[in-house]
Design a binder for these strands. Structure first.
Lengths: 344, 344
DNA sequence: CAAGTGGCTGCAAACGTTTGCAATGGCATT
DNA sequence: AATGCCATTGCAAACGTTTGCAGCCACTTG
């Protein structure tokens, strides 16, 4: 009843300006239907639209078509340095197809996550990329009453039913382990991440497999699980690890922050890295090259992960089956935190 | 004509279930109009809505009201570690009022920025937070045909007409400078950031003012401008600085990355930090405490900046005037990169 | 007791698109 | 010359809300 805003240009005004019916304007402006209108007329319409500064009203379009050209992305923690490159990749890829992304930040809080999902549902997102999967709380195949396709990223849940974009963590740990073995280390420990996260538990498994394969004779190296992926937790875990295992000469940390925690533990114990103990990280976080010693770590293709997830979701949104995961191959970046095993 | 999706629950179905007219459902579900319907009925409606799993269709609501409950945030570079905390603050604050944020990532590309603005305009965002302001390309007071209120964050443009949330950079540099003077330094240089960014030019001005005030007698310390806020640019600039100024004992860098660049330059020249030359950074980036020596730097309240910007934008969206900026107070974090001036 | 009052609910018109269908006109086919 | 076909355009009905207005009823008031 009340005209809440009279400012913005509608399709009808463009129609008047071009002297055609407004439905023709709609067809002329939409690439998918443009072939239905005579090229010459289409051009006239486009010029009129441009002259008037017309912008389609996505709300109306979305209401009519049921699709919003918006996808939701849910991350646990923006501050972790892991997600910004991923988000950037997602954004870059979706820019090509005209989608925009709403990001939701859960701060690892389930309540919050539910609120965010509700908000995204209301806003009719066409798809969802979720980076908060945990092994104990599986994500149902497609949330939001099955209306919306979902892809997981970075982590997966326990069901494995939802398509995901991941890194080959087994491979990544293998690379680090292999590097240490080549340096002559035989007493290698693992500083593991939380086992409820797929990244934490997979890397532990990778460690066991690598150990079995490359140090078949020796008994499994010591493992300690950090409470969280943080410097502090890494330091605590590393201290307890070294207290009980004096012969360790190398530590494979499940994460760069944990590796930095090792640095702190080592300096507290008066041990030199890498001369007495080698340390490897995981993620190749931005600071990896800046700390001293510069950290030898496993490089993840985070931006590519975002791109792949966006592509996969685009596929799902246009009706593809989505029965395959994408698994990216990590690589090793050798820096200064690893050295030949000390001779005793 | 064709029912594109029949799955989702509408207001009418809830109305049928509750035995009332659908307009009553609308009123009962909207907190702002709930007082118009008898409490008992309202409860019945809410129960029915909950039972059917009703979620409002934001597209329809947005079409009718002209407001989308979505705000846009434009950042130049997600990877810079500066913006994630800001985004988090924005998100946290808006969560309270039911807004969600679409983030646009320009990669410092004007073309891209225009595309993003168009996309946000189409999607009827109710407000805009912009972190990409530069001094040479002023942001018009309210973009998108004046329909949408805008607040700038972190950087401002040259006009100063758009409300902004900033840090007091003059104060921040003052703190660093003061600290160095207290340590006995008298030959202090500035490694400046790009002068087209308000952060770059303001910090330079801060340096000049601080120098004038605290080292009134001495002539102004040497200044060199880095091409960009990056480690590499910092190294290059620092090398050229030290080549021409042998007597410098302390460097105030405009940014942590530039400070790290100094570290590299110093180690290349065989100079010890902090024994021979002290260095201060700016931003207190996550890695500041991890590098060696740990960096003395100016701490910014990034998350608070996001919160303040969100509050300010909320104010503008509800009709406030917006004729005041918010200026946050930085603080100094003293770590290991600064020491008493060497005696000659 | 009539008239007014106010609380509650129903009615229906937008908001700006998209799109099936109908109408038109030009052209080729029989 | 009548018919059919195709290309192009117009027409109008949704999509699911919000909200001014009108109607209804139960009260209070003079």
């Amino acid at each position: 009843m009340t005209p809440l805003k009279s400012t913005s240009v509608t399709i009808r005004q463009v129609a008047d300006a071009a002297g055609v019916h407004f439905s023709t304007v709609s067809r002329a402006l939409n690439p998918a239907t443009r072939r239905l209108v005579k090229p010459q007329l289409a051009k006239k319409v486009q010029e009129a639209a441009h002259r008037l500064g017309y912008h389609a009203n996505a709300a109306a379009s979305s209401l009519r078509t049921g699709r919003s050209k918006v996808v939701g992305v849910i991350v646990p923690d923006l501050g972790s340095m892991l997600f910004p490159p991923i988000l950037e990749g997602i954004d870059a890829e979706f820019q090509k197809s005209g989608y925009m992304t709403i990001i939701g930040h859960t701060a690892n809080d389930d309540q919050q996550q539910r609120r965010i999902l509700a908000g995204l549902s209301e806003r009719q997102v066409d798809g969802l990329i979720i980076a908060t999967a945990t092994l104990d709380e599986p994500v149902t195949g497609s949330l939001l009453n099955g209306r919306v396709p979902v892809v997981l990223i970075n982590r997966t849940d326990s069901t494995g039913r939802t398509p995901a974009v991941l890194h080959d963590d087994l491979k990544g740990i293998h690379l680090a382990f292999e590097h240490l073995v080549a340096l002559g280390h035989t007493n290698i420990a693992h500083l593991a991440g939380p086992s409820v996260l797929s990244t934490g538990s997979l890397r532990l498994r990778g460690f066991r497999l690598a150990h079995q394969e490359m140090l078949a004779g020796a008994k499994l190296g010591p493992v300690v699980e950090a409470k969280s992926f943080s410097v502090e937790a890494g330091k605590v875990a590393c201290l307890s690890l070294l207290k009980r295992n004096k012969r360790v000469t190398a530590i494979v940390a499940a994460n760069d922050l944990l590796a930095i925690g090792c640095y702190e533990a080592l300096s507290e114990l008066g041990l030199k890295c890498p001369d007495e103990i080698s340390v490897t990280g995981y993620n190749n976080t931005a600071f990896s090259g800046l700390v001293r010693p510069a950290l030898t770590t496993v490089n993840l293709r985070l931006r590519d992960m975002g791109i792949e997830a966006a592509r996969m979701l685009a596929g799902l949104m246009s009706g593809n089956a989505g029965n395959a995961d994408v698994v990216l191959r990590p690589s090793l970046v050798v820096r200064g935190s690893t050295a030949p095993a000390p001779t005793r």
